[in-house]
Simulated assay, not measured.
Amino acid sequence: MSALTARCVGLLVAAVVLLGAGFRFAYPELTLLGAAAGIAVAYAALTAAWRPRLEVTRSADPDRVARGEAAMMTLTVRNAGRLRAASLVAEDRCGDRSVPVPLLRLRPGRDSTVRYEVPTDRRGVVPVGPLRVTRRDPLGLVTLSRPYGGTVPVWVHPRVHPLNAVPTGAGRSLDGRVDKVPHGSITFDSLREYVVGDELRRVHWRTSARVGELMVRENVDTSLPRIVVLLDNRAVAHPQRVDGVAESFESACEAAASVLVAAYREALPVVLLLVAPEPAGLAAARGDEAAQGPLDRLAAAELADAGDLQPATARLRRERLGDTLVFLTGPGGRDDMGAVGALRAAYPSVVVGVFGATEPAPSGAAGLVVIDAADGAAFAAEWDGVRRW
């Protein structure tokens, strides 16, 4: 992006006027001054248009953190040119702020490294980059800015509050991880080498003959309890804002992250769903198409003005994704407890977390485990106090 300064515009006008007057009235002095002004503008344009060869690399340490944890960005700028040193004015974009990057007398083949802290005080995806280098001519007539390097996202996950209790649902855990039922399963998963003590009836003879050693079938349990976390990301469910941020939604994200981590800790299957679907191509827009983890999705989750609970509940009823449903909403979602309670036929255990509500849950919440909490920490404390699922 190039820009002509006010001095440059004035000089161009003066050059045109002087050249016109000099030729019109045959004043060589005016013609000389006009030509000098034009040459100065041309020199400034050529100087600013020189594009230095810069190689920009950056790395975040770490690139995924919980809200409030430290994350550092390391930026390295190398002068890949061979002829001249570069003295540039540069700044790196970090979220909504700019970080100055000193590039003074950067000689050919040399590099300059800058480390700075990435703000993690808010949940979200912080885009870092690109580096913007500004070139100015010595006369201050032309300014030209160019981007260098790409953008690296830093994922700020919600805070995780430890949960001691994990719903076991109605499914039998045949391998004994949850309800201490003796091991036993009939679902094939993979093949592994034979070890002393394996039953011969589990030997896969065809594969054993092919590889030259005994191979046995490894089975897995398909009846483990499965938890479904439904996060209400509708704007109507979180109407209250503080400095543009819906604190009830931030608390709901923290509660969702806490349930996910607790389920992972117990090796239980868990699914994260959002009431308002994410826009198509959102991962590519964030700059990291490979980011598909639930905590990454929570980091990037945003409130949607449009959204209806009915499609989400219809899918839950149709697909029966688990046996324990955890619905997390805000003050505006209290009136939807009836629709969530209707899912008890498909989900024997339904837990509803309501954040930021000034009144207790309505009477229509009979049969549901309702947790009224001010924030994620209060939700974790009340969650561990639940005696029935």
Rank of each mutant, 00 (worst) to 15 (best):
A44L: 05
A366P: 07
D179W: 12
R78D: 11
M1L: 13
A252W: 03
G307Y: 01
A291K: 03
A45R: 12
L75R: 10
R115P: 06
R192C: 06
A26P: 00
L144W: 11
R159V: 14
A276T: 09
Y194S: 09
V350C: 01
P225W: 02
P158E: 03
L4K: 06
T324F: 01
D336Q: 14
T329N: 00
Y194A: 08
V118I: 13
T31S: 15
A361P: 06
L30H: 10
R265E: 12
L131T: 02
R53W: 12
V216P: 06
L141Q: 05
R192E: 13
R82H: 12
L131F: 07
S251I: 02
L298W: 04
T358M: 11
L282W: 15
D121N: 11
L141G: 05
P62C: 03
D308A: 12
P269Q: 09
L321P: 03
A15V: 11
S87T: 15
Y43H: 13
A283T: 14
P130T: 07
G176W: 10
V89N: 10
A237L: 05
G81V: 01
D232I: 06
V77Q: 06
R202H: 14
D308M: 07
L33F: 15
Y264G: 11
P158A: 04
V178W: 02
A14S: 13
L4G: 03
R115C: 09
A40G: 06
G333C: 00
G353D: 04
L273I: 00
D375Q: 08
E193Q: 08
A60F: 02
V125E: 05
R159D: 06
A86D: 05
R82E: 14
L321G: 01
G129D: 00
A276V: 10
A345D: 12
D221E: 13
H204W: 01
A280C: 07
T207W: 08
T57D: 14
L12H: 06
L30Y: 13
Y148L: 03
P119M: 02
D384A: 11
T31D: 10
E91T: 13
S59D: 14
C8M: 13
V142N: 02
V369M: 13
L309G: 01
R78K: 15
G332V: 05
L104G: 12
L18V: 07
G353W: 01
S363P: 01
V128L: 13
V196P: 01
V160L: 06
Q292C: 09
Y148W: 10
D137T: 02
G244C: 07
P130K: 01
D111H: 13
H238L: 08
V369L: 11
L54G: 02
L316S: 08
Y148G: 07
L274V: 02
G385Q: 15
W383F: 14
P279C: 03
E278I: 04
A6D: 09
A35G: 15
